[in-house]
């Protein structure tokens, strides 16, 4: 909510200083918003459908089950696909820890969740282009794996 207040104040101040510039800025804002509108709706539809299947129960069940390497792989896959705000993702991660899911698996899940976005890829593609968006996600994916493995090493969960 306070974002609206900040934006409002900035807008008023800007308007007082220079009307033309402010209108120019608003036009730019509208043009960009309009440019992504329909894609945004499509991406949100895909997110909603995907999250219907990848829900918290499925995540807890899949990651809590037996073998940590299978857990690790599932965590990477689920984390890369899903998209969740932090206030849902981290309490869920806390529950996973209570179920004795290794830190390594939790880390693989939360880092890919944050850094790799398969569902938001169409969006990234629109700004960065297909190739660069793909490279960027691949790099982030690699970083996530490294982070998770180092986490596993430090908590003595592997070797």
């Amino acid at each position: 909510m306070y974002l609206w207040i900040i934006t409002g104040v900035v807008l008023i101040v800007s308007f007082i200083f220079n009307k033309d510039k402010t209108i120019q800025g608003l036009k730019k804002a509208w043009k960009q918003l309009y440019g992504i509108g329909s894609l945004l709706v499509l991406v949100l539809i895909c997110v909603a459908i995907a999250l219907n299947f990848i829900n918290e129960d499925l995540i807890t069940q899949t990651l809590s089950g037996g073998n940590r390497y299978i857990g690790f792989l599932s965590a990477v896959v689920i984390g890369s696909i899903a998209m969740m705000p932090g206030f849902i993702a981290f309490p869920l991660a806390g529950i996973l820890r209570q179920n004795n899911v290794p830190f390594m698996v939790v880390s693989a899940f939360t880092t890919t969740l944050m850094m790799v976005g398969i569902l938001t890829f169409p969006f990234e593609k629109k700004y960065l282009g297909f190739k660069v968006a793909l490279i960027r996600n691949f790099i982030c994916f690699t970083i996530c794996i490294v982070v998770a493995l180092v986490t596993g090493l430090i908590y003595r969960e592997i070797f």
Binding site: L3, W4, I6, T7, V10, L11, S14, K21, T22, Q24, G25, L26, K27, K28, A29, W30, Q32, L33, L40, L44
Partner: peptide
């Protein structure tokens, strides 16, 4: 998203002109 997106783009727009 709809709550934050217009604000974000307005702020970006103003950033670009100022």
């Amino acid at each position: 998203i709809i709550v934050i997106l217009p604000c974000v783009f307005i702020l970006i727009g103003l950033f670009e002109v100022w």
